[in-house]
Each structure stands twice: as C-alpha cells, then as structure tokens.
C-alpha cells in the first residue's frame, strides 16, 4: 500500500530461496539415475507468461525442478524481484534463479543476494553437478571477479566422487558483450576440467540457439525469453542427455 521508493530494498516473504530449494533438490533426487528439468530465462516484465509457465509446469509430473537463467528484474526494482519470486513460489517444483545483467541494475544485485542468494552456486541433482555462474562482467567494472575462477576452482575439488556429470548454467555466454571475453578460453578450459561436462545453457539472447562456441563439442544452448512461452526440457541420464524445446 505504501511504497517508500522503487529501490528501497524493503523485503518481505521468502528469502535465500536458492539455498532452500537446493536442499530440497539434493535431498529428493539423490542418486536418481534420470533427472528432468525445465530451463527458462529472461522473465523480466513478462509476468503473465511466467505465471502461465508455472501453471503449465505444475501440470507436469515428469519434472524434477526448474532452473531460471536470470533477468528476473528489468529495471532492478525491489518489487520486480518480489513479484517474480512470488509467481515462482507457486510452483510445485523446486527452482533456482541465476543472476542476469538486468538483475544488477541500480542496487539489484544487493536484492538478488538477499532474495535468491550468492551470485555463484552449485548443486547436485542425481549424478549431475549444476555449476551456476555469474557471467555479467560488464555490469561490475572489474570490481568483482566475473567469472569467478576461485569459485570454479573450489567447486572442482568439492564433492568429488559424488557426481559423474557436470552442466554449467549462466546468464550471458562467452562471446556475448556481457562476458569477459578476454578470459573466454580460460573459462572453457576451467569448466572442461569437471567430470563429464555435458553442455552449457544460458539465456540473455531471447531466442533459441545451440552453438558449439569453442568447437570442442560442448554445446551452448540459449533458451528463448519467457515472453516467447518456450523453455528447454532437459533429461539427463546416467552419462548423457536429451533435450527438447517446448512451447506452452
């Protein structure tokens, strides 16, 4: 009823949602041979379409969880984070949200950290580790390490033996204007050190694409923005994967 300021950072409702949902995912799908998840992205200012996605995905019992590839806010407004979170909270499947460049605007990164959690995180579902990385280097003026190689290095040794495959999720892919392309090769080298890197998936581009950016067999999948009413459905089996672009 009373709005103090568009960027007031006045939060209510669930906070640190990623951690809470990761605990749920890791518990529920521990050791599961086949996992299936929906990858969506760029829902900024597409509230109706995001809500329609939640309704659609709630009718699917074959889904294990949902990954959002970032740009949950458009202008970085405090309310954008809360409104979008509230829509996602209606999902019966656990979800995690990666940070996008729009989520950085104004004090958006401060809000993202409170509502969703750390800018880099990982979790294990079944036999697969999901490495979720902040790649929005253009937003930070080099005051933060983006991508954060310390984090990647730590993750490389953490949980060893507890997973067989790796998937890397980010908002903006190498070659995009957000990415620190000076370290693109190093980035690719670093993630290739993980056990059986299956593929990378990202948003940012608002249309569907699959590109072998580094010509090393690792495909980068770009999911359309949620405004297109599309998502990618991934099925990961013991050591490989399958995918499908779904329109709802």
């Amino acid at each position: 009823m009373f709005e103090v300021h568009p960027y007031d950072g006045k939060l209510s409702g669930a906070l640190q949602v990623n951690q809470r949902n990761i605990a749920q995912i890791e518990e529920a799908f521990k050791g599961k041979d086949t996992i299936r998840y929906a990858f969506i992205s760029d829902s900024q200012r597409w509230y109706d379409e995001l809500e329609a996605f939640v309704v659609h995905s709630n009718m699917r019992d074959d889904l294990d969880f949902i990954i959002h590839g970032g740009d949950i806010a458009d202008f970085g407004l405090t309310k954008e984070f809360l409104w979008q979170r509230d829509i996602l909270e209606k999902s019966k499947h656990p979800y995690v949200v990666v940070i996008g460049n729009h989520d950085y605007l104004a004090n958006g990164d401060e809000i993202y950290k409170k509502v969703f959690g750390p800018l880099n995180f990982s979790f294990i579902a079944g036999h697969t580790k999901f490495l979720c990385l902040n790649t929005n280097a253009l937003e930070s003026n080099y005051s933060e390490s983006i991508p954060n190689f310390d984090f990647i290095k730590q993750e490389r040794t953490k949980d060893s033996g507890e997973y067989a495959n790796t998937v890397v999720i980010m908002h903006a892919q190498p070659t995009s204007e957000q990415f620190n392309n000076n370290v693109a090769d190093l980035f690719q080298y670093s993630i290739n050190q993980f056990p059986n890197l299956l593929f990378c998936a990202h948003g940012h581009g608002h249309n569907y694409k699959e590109v072998d950016i580094f010509e090393d067999g690792i495909i980068y999948y770009q999911v359309p923005n949620i405004g297109k009413r599309q998502y990618i459905l991934y099925t990961i089996t013991k050591d490989s994967y399958d995918y499908e672009l779904v329109t709802y």
């Binding site: 103090v4 300021h5 960027y7 007031d8 950072g9 006045k10 939060l11 405090t78 004090n107 401060e110 809000i111 409170k114």
Partner: peptide, 11 residues
C-alpha cells in the same frame, strides 16, 4: 529520506 532496509545504503 530512504532508510537502507535490506539494501546496503540509505538514499
């Protein structure tokens, strides 16, 4: 005057 609430600084 905007207090900092859950953000990092007042405005």
């Amino acid at each position: 005057y905007v207090p900092k609430y859950d953000s990092e600084r007042m405005k």
